[in-house]
Simulated assay, not measured.
Amino acid sequence: MSLDDLDEEIQNSYAGFDDELTLSLDRETRNELALLEAALEPDETDELVRRAIHMLFQRTVDTGKLDFQLRSSYDVTYDEYLSGMTFEEMTGADQYPSMDDERRYQF
């Protein structure tokens, strides 16, 4: 897969999200959400879910897990996604033909 594939998949996922999501919560998640709501007193519970998504995203980026997953699936990193081009495209390394190591030093 490539940067274009990743971009297309993100756009498709984004288009599939409505302003509201319906999700099911298990018992442990309900308990944790109730405790957080009581302690943090947000204006609405949705705010806690938004914060949780932001925190998960930031942690995934900071630990390098996002880059690992993107490299495994799409052969790009988060920085490459943000810039819209791969490292090879940035440095011009994809402009040169590959070297034939067997014939490299033959005249």
Results as ranks from 00 to 15, higher is better:
Asp19Ala: 04
Asp19Trp: 00
Asp19Leu: 02
Asp19Glu: 02
Asp19Thr: 00
Glu20Asn: 08
Glu20His: 01
Leu21Lys: 08
Thr22Ile: 09
Leu23Asp: 03
Ser24Val: 03
Ser24Cys: 01
Leu25His: 06
Leu25Phe: 11
Leu25Gln: 03
Asp26Arg: 05
Asp26Met: 01
Asp26Val: 06
Arg27Gln: 09
Glu28Trp: 00
Glu28Asn: 07
Glu28Asp: 09
Thr29His: 07
Thr29Gly: 00
Arg30Leu: 07
Arg30Pro: 00
Arg30Asn: 03
Arg30His: 07
Arg30Cys: 03
Asn31Met: 02
Asn31Ile: 07
Glu32Asp: 08
Glu32Phe: 03
Leu33His: 04
Ala34Thr: 14
Ala34Phe: 03
Ala34Met: 10
Leu35Pro: 00
Ala39Asp: 13
Ala39Arg: 15
Leu40Lys: 04
Leu40Ser: 04
Leu40Thr: 02
Leu40Pro: 00
Glu41His: 08
Pro42Met: 10
Pro42Asn: 06
Asp43Leu: 06
Asp46Gly: 15
Asp46Leu: 03
Asp46Arg: 06
Glu47Gln: 11
Leu48Asp: 01
Leu48Asn: 04
Arg51Lys: 04
Arg51Ala: 12
His54Gln: 10
Met55Val: 11
Leu56His: 07
Phe57Thr: 05
Phe57Tyr: 12
Gln58Cys: 02
Arg59Ile: 12
Arg59Lys: 11
Thr60Cys: 03
Thr60Gly: 00
Thr60Leu: 00
Thr60Met: 06
Thr60Val: 02
Val61Cys: 04
Val61Asp: 00
Gly64Trp: 01
Lys65Glu: 08
Lys65Trp: 01
Lys65Pro: 00
Leu66His: 03
Leu66Arg: 05
Phe68Val: 05
Gln69Phe: 15
Gln69Met: 15
Gln69Cys: 09
Leu70Val: 09
Arg71Gln: 14
Ser72Gln: 15
Ser72Glu: 15
Tyr74Phe: 15
Tyr74Cys: 07
Asp75Tyr: 02
Asp75Pro: 04
Asp75Ala: 15
Val76Glu: 06
Val76Ala: 03
Asp79Arg: 10
Asp79Phe: 01
Tyr81Gly: 06
Leu82Trp: 02
Leu82Phe: 10
Ser83Arg: 14
Gly84His: 13
Gly84Pro: 13
Thr86Asp: 09
Glu89Gly: 13
Glu89Ile: 13
Met90Gln: 15
Met90Ala: 15
Gly92Thr: 14
Asp94Cys: 14
Asp94Ala: 15
Asp94Leu: 12
Gln95Phe: 12
Tyr96Met: 09
Tyr96Thr: 14
Tyr96Val: 14
Tyr96Phe: 15
Pro97Ile: 10
Ser98Arg: 12
Met99Asn: 07
Asp100Trp: 06
Asp100Phe: 05
Asp101Ile: 10
Asp101His: 04
Glu102Trp: 05
Arg103Pro: 02
Arg103His: 12
Arg103Val: 06
Arg104Asn: 11
Arg104Ile: 09
Arg104Pro: 03
Tyr105Val: 08
Tyr105Ala: 11
Tyr105Ile: 08
